[in-house]
Design a protein around this nucleic acid. Structure first.
Lengths: 150, 150
DNA sequence: TTAGTTTAAGACAATAAACTCTTAAATAGG
DNA sequence: CCTATTTAAGAGTTTATTGTCTTAAACTAA
């Protein structure tokens, strides 16, 4: 699996918030139901993003989370780093510490290119742009197509 | 992590066998020590490759495992499929079942390209060719550079 | 001020992945 | 035949990931 489940849930939630392009707070409970993700688990993941200032949260009635200014400008790469850390983009494909161009593993030269293409894919556009594109193309964020981009 | 640890261990062991270009049997115990992988764990992984006819095994004194004819022709892709299964090359990056060009997730179009580049990287050459290249370039298979391509 | 709502925090439980250990079966060589 | 060696098979353990539950803190509105 390329990304952990935590990471995938975090991405889907961030995309959900980007899709709602007003800047209001959305409750994690509602998001968890619409995206079909465990509420408590999603809460913990979004706390990481809040701690990283990609989200802003507000407690109490009508509270919830929303994208921060930083979050709106951020790319999927930034979200992946915040949740899964940088390992995917720094480590040897065979897990060999010290693998590099001086002493490469058999995959090294191929892997650095492929790794860069993964990185570029995730860096291509920020959340605001993905949200605009999503409105045109009606991207899905759920298994059942239950989510509607608005 | 792109590949599971089981898969990485399996790849390193298969590359080890490819590096020894004589067709003799190598004991899993020796391989586990030279590659610094748990013996019993490596045994189980190599059993999967044997079951898939990528390796041949022989019991008893001077026994061990070696690449089969199929194994020598196989690519790293074949080994990954044998150990981790096809998920990496078939599933949606956001884990959404039914994701496809009709109803894509926000990553879909980028991901199918990136996924193909991972697949191509792993399919590029077979084990015999990697072994030849490894002899020229002295690829590493261990953390400590302890392995010598011969 | 009080009750209800929501995120924060952390303990806890279930599952999966990674790793270990024991026993069985096959083989070689004395 | 007997013993040592090696893979096969599978049970068991540990660790990491995923998921659940409870309590606290912040906030709203009546």
């Amino acid at each position: 699996m390329l990304l952990s489940k935590s990471c995938v849930y975090g991405l889907r939630a961030a995309l959900y918030l980007a899709a709602k392009r007003d800047g209001s707070y959305y409750s994690i409970r509602t998001m968890s139901e619409e995206l079909d993700i465990s509420f408590h688990f999603l809460t913990k993941i979004l706390q990481q993003l809040t701690a990283d200032s990609l989200l802003e949260s507000y407690k109490g009635p009508n509270g919830g989370v929303r994208l921060s200014a930083k979050g709106k400008k951020s790319t999927l790469f930034d979200l992946v780093i915040a949740i899964d850390g940088p390992g995917l983009f720094t480590e040897c494909a065979l897990g060999l510490p010290g693998c590099g161009s001086e002493e490469p593993c058999p995959l090294h030269n191929s892997w650095i290119d492929t790794r860069a293409s993964i990185e570029n894919m995730l860096k291509r556009t920020n959340l605001t742009k993905i949200a605009e594109e999503g409105k045109e193309k009606h991207f899905r964020l759920t298994a059942d197509g239950h989510f509607s981009w608005s």
